[in-house]
Amino acid sequence: MADTPQKTTRIRSTNWIGGTLSWFWLFIVILPIYWIVITSIKSQSEYFVTNPFVPSSEPTLDAYRLVIESGFIRYFFNSVIVTVGAVIPAVLVSFMAAFAIIRSRPHWFLKSTNAVLLMGLAIPLQATIIPVYLIIIRLHLYDTLLALILPSIAFAIPLSVLVLSNFIRDVPNELFESMRLDGCSEWQTLWRLALPLTRPALVTVTIYNALLIWNGFLLPLVLTQSPNLRVLPLALWTFQGQYGINVPAILAAVLLTALPILALYVVGRRQLLSGLTAGFTK
């Protein structure tokens, strides 16, 4: 497809501005990442005497050992629990709601649900962190992982419903009709027809939400306080506060917190990227 005649005519003249700019910006993007990697394998004393952009002559994994010993394995699992615990229910309930919004006969309840969710897209939900904090206290959930999971589910719903309902709308009506003629209930249709057909959108929405929740900082900062309940971004921040001058260790921690996502990026780059722009480009 890339070599169709149209494409070749289109790119015949060189895009100098775009080209120069993109190499330049690539450099800006890569430089800090390169620096994180090489610095994280320097010793602390080496960090202070060598050029920041020259790789270590005697690489060491001391920084990584310090990070692991500081409890990052536990924080990693906290992050996994919160992310999985929030994303799966969020995507499931969003999928059901999206199916209802598209497939049901018109109903005031669904219309208002849809309106409320669309409004949720326009509102910076972080601005409501104080009442969320109050609700979590009143539910006696303060300083638990569930306190992070519940609001994360809620915050994920509006965009998920939007993306999924746009997708379900594109499923040909004949397919639903034939399911009905076969005597399937709507509930069966939901799982047997809509779910498999919506899979690309489900993957997209799952990835988008997972990334957002994995990297979330405000909710854990406000809703937890015990060290053993820290999720990775919060742990990273407190670690930085503790080991302020041990830059190699801090950067090793940065790299370790991003590693699962980077691994995922290597495996499923396309889906990850389409997940990121879910709902914005369709």
Binding site: M96, A97, R105, H107, L117, G120, I157
Partner: peptide
């Protein structure tokens, strides 16, 4: 058929 009940869990959370 009205499928409103399917949207209830999402609405409750939100």
């Amino acid at each position: 058929r009205s499928l409103g009940w399917l949207a209830v869990p999402a609405l409750v959370f939100f």
